[in-house]
């Protein structure tokens, strides 16, 4: 049980850190001109040349492997909703690190999502 929550904590930190780095990198990359395969490939080419992309990917890779282990320990109906706690951590990161304007409506939306996720999670409690 302690192991599950420790790994969940590591998963949340690495996911949020990785996604914030990735968001910063994608904003620097700029959006694709059109949503067509050729333009998307050009966009991906530019994205992988950005340093922040390579900061985010190892963190996300770590969080991915942590997710695999969590999925092998607990039911998906616990792991996936519990991992949604990254919404709160991520919103704080978006506000204070990425300097996004998180207004009241966005905060209320995030809180509702988290409460909803908690209610969904209560249907299947961890067994380890």
């Amino acid at each position: 049980m302690i192991g599950t929550f420790l790994l969940l904590g590591l998963f949340l930190c690495s996911t949020t850190g990785g996604e914030i780095a990735l968001t910063h990198g994608m904003k620097a990359t700029g959006e694709p001109e059109r949503l067509r395969p050729k333009e998307l490939l050009k966009f991906l080419g530019r994205a992988v040349c950005n340093g922040w992309f390579w900061v985010g990917i190892p963190l996300m890779a770590f969080s991915f492997y942590a997710l695999l282990i969590l999925l092998s320990w607990q039911p998906i109906s616990f792991v996936i909703p519990a991992s949604a706690l990254s919404n709160v951590v991520g919103t704080l990161g978006a506000k204070y690190i990425l300097k996004e304007d998180v207004n009241v409506a966005r905060w209320v939306g995030v809180v509702l999502v988290c409460v909803g996720v908690a209610l969904v999670s209560l249907d299947s409690l961890p067994m380890r």
């Binding site: 209320v108 939306g109 509702l112 999502v113 909803g116 209610l119």
Partner: peptide, 9 residues
């Protein structure tokens, strides 16, 4: 609640 939250955002 999740759906309302997503719609709000």
């Amino acid at each position: 609640l999740i759906c309302i939250g997503v719609l709000l955002v």
